[in-house]
Design a protein around this nucleic acid. Sequence first.
DNA 1: CTACAAAAAGACAACGTTGTTTAAATTGGT
DNA 2: ACCAATTTAAACAACGTTGTCTTTTTGTAG
Lengths: 330, 330
Amino acid sequence: MVTIKDVAAHAGVAFKTVSRVVNNDPTVKPKNREKVLKAIHELGYRPNRAAQMTRRKKSGIIGFIADELLRVPYTFDLIRGAQDLAWRHNKELMVLNVNVDKYSVEGAVDHLFEHRAEGIIYAAMYHREVSVPSQLAEVPAVLANCYDSSGLYPSIVPDEKEAAREITQTLLDKGYQRVLFLNLNENIIAGRLRKAGVEQAFAENNLSTENVVIESVIVRENQIERSVARERAADLITRFKPDAILCGQDPIAVEVYFVAQALGLQVGKDIGIASFDDWDIIPTLLQPGLTTMALPHYYMGQWAFNYLLDGRSDKIRETARFSLVNRQSF
Amino acid sequence: MVTIKDVAAHAGVAFKTVSRVVNNDPTVKPKNREKVLKAIHELGYRPNRAAQMTRRKKSGIIGFIADELLRVPYTFDLIRGAQDLAWRHNKELMVLNVNVDKYSVEGAVDHLFEHRAEGIIYAAMYHREVSVPSQLAEVPAVLANCYDSSGLYPSIVPDEKEAAREITQTLLDKGYQRVLFLNLNENIIAGRLRKAGVEQAFAENNLSTENVVIESVIVRENQIERSVARERAADLITRFKPDAILCGQDPIAVEVYFVAQALGLQVGKDIGIASFDDWDIIPTLLQPGLTTMALPHYYMGQWAFNYLLDGRSDKIRETARFSLVNRQSF
DNA sequence: CTACAAAAAGACAACGTTGTTTAAATTGGT
DNA sequence: ACCAATTTAAACAACGTTGTCTTTTTGTAG
């Protein structure tokens, strides 16, 4: 590989001058700068990042550990949010996917330390509490889409409750009155908080709790439960006769669309359907398109990166707002 | 940060001895090795990868450029395939997502060169022909899920035709006789090749072409077309009366499930449905589960990485077999 | 106990950069 | 034209490692 010295020889200057040109040092005469630039171009010189790192004693690397407990691909936006910023700030985002077992997480942290990562983002694939290896504290670290019980780390998670309140309020504002909420299982954080948000909305509108039914119909990612969910949903719809159904996550909405069709109900006309997540292709795959509260993954990725970039050290627990994606399902 | 010299001082040996221990050099006496190991542990020393790289003149970095023209998240498996191997071989997979514009691709390549990447994997998010920046040839490079017209690069793509032949054959073996193939648009490579595969299967079974109808019903990712697709599908089903429907991709199958329900046909009983892709959550979301030919993304990622690892330089055009994922839709 | 080979550990240079100091070239005022 | 001041460029050390060579220690045969 061509080095700074090769360039210097070719241009007939000291190698330090080449370094100056590469680093935009203004104290080099235009004539020399031109010579060097020409030589760089002719030889195809590219600075050696590893050498720069050793000398500068800065890595420019931010680590991103993706806790791949579940394989929920739409969370890829978390990575993109961080990576887009990294690119813009000329930093390296070193992404590592880890498996369930602790060994692998610690291995990833070790790995990042060896690269002298200047900060680490630890992201979970769904909103949950995590326990991270203690070594993580040796370097600035942020948790994204998760939080730790200890309060040792800053974190950002989706504002589940507010999202639920908001979409429920939107339903009510549009005149829907009887809402069936087919919630996630309540042992999932999102399930608990979303329930609270829906209840808050009803309370704020002074509506009787007779007008809302909240049922946990699904355990995440469980196929057997899903068919049960469909039956439960059909049953609840015929008994409770809601004019709107709020689904705990987009996959539930798929079930509901099928149930609605089976019952002869036209979505968006006979019955309104709303949901959470904006799960990749699902909302646009359904007809009519599913109006849903989009998880702020991209934003959380950005926020986490910016936290590190700003050199912050406060242990804030931030929440990120969902955004309502309007389609035609209500 | 603690360096090799700090460790040496703490252990009372020459810093070179520490280096030897770190690199498992057998020529260090057990007693000293122990002392050093103890010091390493006590000081929390971690080798500096950047310094190692400069001295060793090897980066251990493989670049992965993800052409993010379309945001098809299930292709994440391409990255995982490569990354799992990288981890196992103690290499670094540097993943860069790029946008449509050429500038960004070239920027990514530059970036990787600066890191002295020992090889580059260029992956497309759907099977297509690409034109890559010429600088890529300066380093060992492989194309995954795409190929270049020039033949300058080795590549691996899914074996679309064989997959279509295989699933069609499977349908025929199970006794299905009248197949409706709701294909992708034929200006997509997968559309063309899958059509050829279906036709081959019918020819090999000496079946009249009266028993198969092939229609392009969808342009990838186009919502407007999708509702048209549903109508077309309904129309074709009632007119042609197929006993099996093969869908050009899993999202089409979603439409078909709805259409089938509307027509009072029970999937897997009254009508068999098969598909391509194994698109993330879709096949398990549908009830009954969708039997589909899974794209070999993970394998392609692995293959590409291994190609580089093996130091190959032949310009092979490899194809990767889909795998049939049996569920209950036929 | 000596000699000598083999094993182990140390010294020093090198990797490709950048930071710092020192020297050379240029400029400006008289 | 000369000196000082300033701008520009060169020289050299340093970053944290590993490669190579040299020295020291250890072990063994006589």
